[in-house]
Amino acid sequence: MRRIQERDEAAFRELVERYQNKVYSIIYGILRNHNDAEDIAQQVFTKIYFSIGSFDFRSSLLTWIYKITVNECYDYLRKRRVRKLVYESDLGDEETPGMERSEPDTAPLIDEQLERRDLVLKLLEKVSPEDRNLMLLKEVEGHSVEELARMTGMNENTIKVKLFRARQKLLKAAERLMKRKGLPLKVEQG
């Protein structure tokens, strides 16, 4: 890490090669589009290169990279939503469908799955970036409380309290969203 902070290109290359699959996989999990995943993964490593000096070793490198990656995804989603709104405001209702750039391009995902993923992303937007990262590290990456404590430099009780509050916030956000849409809070498993 010190070598990377001193702008050692070989050390930076090692870092990229070590974490590129992880970063790509996180982004693809959120966006489900290979072009976007490639573009944002490049952006993540560029950001790491330019801001590595601010890494203070309080958390693990993976946690820091994870935070940057998820933040970049959410920045992208925000920009895409603004672009879409601007775009839709310029077009009639009939022209809009199918014109969006980042439709998932892999397996034929059914609408229901897409809706569920959109819902999760929207809900995760309602909690703080720290809570969001913890929830993702726990539920998506499958890390245990002990691992999270090691990775973040916090103690286990703090992690438990933060996860509990994050889960509460997510639940309340889901209830509000469902109420607004007039739907019951029910999500199929699997």
Partner: peptide, 19 residues
Amino acid sequence: LPAQQAMLSELRPPRPVGP
């Protein structure tokens, strides 16, 4: 919570992916 966990699992990539 089971529903919440199921929702969050939607963000796991379906298979290993990389650039």
